[in-house]
C-alpha cells in the first residue's frame, strides 16, 4: 500500500548570517571564551513547517494551497525526501518522483540526445532502461533532426518540449508537482496535457501545489490549506477551495 504519513512534522531552517557562516569567527569566539558575538553566532531559525499531521492514502489526489511562504514547497520537499524534518516523523511507502523544475540538469551546450541521457540519469534511469525508452522520448518531443543540435539553439518552447518529454517518462507511485507544467505552444500543449493526465491517472498518490482553483478542482478531491507553516484547513476540495478563494 502506497502512503505518506506525517506525524508532528516540524521544519526549522537555520539562517546563517555572514558570521555564522564563518569558521574564523567561530574560532575567535572559542578562543575568547565565547564572549564575543554570543548572539551574533547565527543561530537564528525560521520555522518552515510546524507540527504538521497529514496522512495520505493510496488513490488520493491532494492539492496544496496557501500564500507565498506558507510552506507549500517545504512540504513538497519533505514529502519527496529532500528535507528531513527537524522534529516529528515522516513515513513514505512507495516510489516517489517530483516534477518540480523539469529543466534541471539540462546542459545547453549538449545536444538534445545527450540531454536525454543526462536528465534521464538524474531521474534515476539506468543506461539500459533509458535505451528502451529513448525512441518514445524522441518521438514525443517532435524535435526530429534538432535532437542532433545543441540545446542552446532551441527556442524556449522547444527546450520545454524536450524537458517535458524526458521528465514524464517516469511512472512513480507518488507524484509530486509544483504547479502544472507549462509546455509551450498550442499544438504540443494538448498532447502534453493528455500525457500528464495519463501519468497522474496511473500514479497512486498525487500531491500538487497550485494557485489555480480550476486546476485543483479538476484534479483533486482533497485540498490542504497551509498558512504560516501550519495546516489551516484540510478536507474536501470544493469546501476548502471555496473557503480559500473568497
Amino acid at each position: 500500500m502506497t502512503s505518506i504519513e506525517l506525524e508532528n512534522v516540524t521544519v526549522d531552517f537555520p539562517i546563517f548570517n555572514a558570521r555564522g557562516r564563518s569558521l574564523k569567527n567561530r574560532m575567535i569566539s572559542y578562543a575568547t571564551g565565547g564572549a564575543i558575538n554570543a548572539d551574533a553566532e547565527g543561530h537564528v531559525t525560521i520555522r518552515g513547517l510546524e507540527k504538521v499531521n497529514i496522512i495520505l492514502k493510496e488513490g488520493e489526489r491532494v492539492g496544496l494551497i496557501g500564500h507565498n511562504g506558507s510552506g507549500k514547497t517545504t512540504l513538497l520537499r519533505v514529502m519527496s525526501g529532500v528535507y528531513t524534518p527537524s522534529e516529528g516523523k515522516i513515513n513514505v511507502k512507495g516510489k516517489s518522483a517530483s516534477l518540480i523544475n523539469i529543466s534541471l540538469g539540462i546542459d545547453p551546450e549538449a545536444t538534445g540526445r545527450q540531454n536525454i541521457a543526462l536528465r534521464g540519469a538524474l531521474l534515476g534511469f539506468e543506461k539500459r532502461a533509458l535505451k528502451l525508452r529513448r525512441k518514445e522520448i524522441e518521438e514525443f518531443s517532435e524535435l526530429g533532426s534538432f535532437l542532433e543540435m545543441p540545446v542552446r539553439t532551441y527556442s524556449t518552447g522547444m527546450q520545454l518540449r524536450l524537458a517535458f518529454s524526458i521528465s514524464t517518462v517516469i511512472q512513480p507511485e507518488i507524484l509530486i508537482m509544483d504547479e502544472w507544467l507549462s509546455t509551450g505552444d498550442e499544438g504540443f500543449k494538448e498532447k502534453a496535457n493528455e500525457r500528464l493526465r495519463t501519468l497522474i491517472g496511473n500514479t497512486k498518490i498525487l500531491v500538487i501545489a497550485s494557485h489555480s482553483k480550476e486546476l485543483l478542482l479538476e484534479n483533486c478531491q482533497r485540498i490542504i490549506w497551509l498558512e504560516h507553516g501550519k495546516v489551516r484547513m484540510d478536507g474536501d476540495a470544493v469546501e476548502v477551495a471555496n473557503a480559500y478563494f473568497t
Binding site: R77, S80, V82, S98, I100, L104, L122, L123, G124
Partner: peptide
C-alpha cells in the same frame, strides 16, 4: 545545490 534540493540523489 539545485540538484540536491530537488532530487533524492
Amino acid at each position: 545545490s539545485e540538484t540536491l534540493l530537488q532530487l533524492p540523489i
